[in-house]
């Protein structure tokens, strides 16, 4: 196959249908931007959930040495071995407790590193600054209050936290946002595919003389179809590249600069650039495979080979 010949056919074809090509590029770009956004939103939610979120309902944080100086709840010093034993014994007796996991300072340090590894705060932390904790799974997550009343204010206990309550609403909202983005993406993608089918039909019609001659001199079906399929794939790829640019700019202006969410919301662990960049090949792959496939099926209907 002569590459140069095929390339020139593609160029001519794209130019001939400039308005259609533009529509395809824009709709592919928008739909894949939404797809990338939705995937990144999901990543963000799971990054924020951290290590314990899906595993436990309530956490009892114990006093450490530095808390003893700074936190009034820990005025009597760091937690002792006896106090810990008492807490475990008490938890064992409570029927609503399903499971208890002890997180040592070293464990806490490890999990923190995993979640916030690249934040400047993490670099200065040492394991003995971390809090020991008991992570508790309840038979009934709504009964968090029972644990709170039993352990809040006890010696050696710094605080009792219901982890889900605080973040559940936010996560539900982010989840819905991501689902909405996916739904919109699906609609846009269908629109993009229909546009491609239509583009192929128009260009198959406008080139019927060429394809008719190709058929009669014995060009293979693949050779006749390739320019149409490549046209759609190239238009899609341009759209996909645009989507990548949108995503990169979008992240840059909301999180890093512009709205600068990473400076305003320092406690939130935003998904990193690597999470975004690793999605881009996927988006590019979809951007030319889907249109190529749509064109292929359109050709079966509109182009006799």
């Amino acid at each position: 196959m002569r590459l140069q010949f095929v390339m020139s056919e593609i160029r001519v074809g794209l130019r001939r249908n400039l308005t259609m090509t533009f529509a395809v590029v824009v709709s592919v770009a928008l739909s894949l931007t939404l797809l990338g956004g939705a995937i990144l939103l999901r990543d963000q939610v799971s990054a924020m959930k951290g290590y314990w979120y899906d595993k436990v309902n309530v956490s009892i944080f114990l006093c450490n040495k530095s808390d003893a100086e700074s936190d009034p709840n820990c005025a009597k010093g760091a937690v002792t071995a006896d106090q810990k034993k008492q807490i475990v014994a008490d938890l064992d007796e409570m029927k609503i407790v399903d499971d208890v996991v002890h997180e040592s300072q070293d464990d806490a340090y490890k999990h923190y590193k995993e979640q916030f590894g690249d934040s400047p705060l993490a670099a200065t932390l040492t394991p003995d600054q971390m809090q020991e904790s008991y992570r508790i799974k309840l038979t009934d997550p709504e009964k968090y209050e029972v644990i709170a009343t039993a352990f809040d204010g006890r010696e050696g206990v710094q605080s009792v936290q219901d982890q889900k309550g605080i973040l559940d609403n936010l996560f539900t909202m982010l989840g819905m946002l991501s689902t909405a983005a996916l739904a919109l993406m699906a609609v846009m993608l269908v629109v993009a595919m229909l546009l491609i089918v239509n583009t192929v039909r128009v260009s198959a019609f406008s080139r019927r003389r060429e394809t008719g001659i190709m058929r009669l001199v014995g060009a293979s079906g693949f050779y006749i179809q390739a320019p149409f399929i490549m046209e759609a794939a190239v238009a899609g790829l341009i759209g996909g590249a645009l989507a990548c640019v949108f995503l990169v700019l979008g992240r840059f202006f909301t999180i890093d600069s512009g709205m600068a969410l990473s400076e305003r919301l320092t406690l939130i662990n935003f998904v990193g650039w690597d999470a975004l960049l690793t999605k881009l090949p996927l988006i590019l792959a979809i951007s030319f495979l889907m249109p190529a496939l749509a064109a292929f099926f359109a050709l079966r209907k509109y182009l006799k080979v």
Binding site: R2, R209, E210, G212, I213, V217, G218, S220, Y223, I224
Partner: peptide
Amino acid sequence: LGNVFQDFRLLPNKTVGENVAFAQEVIG
């Protein structure tokens, strides 16, 4: 097989040489 038609069926935007070459280009 070769084909000749009443209405010639040439490609109007290609030169004479390109029209003939087309039959060879498309079969590689």
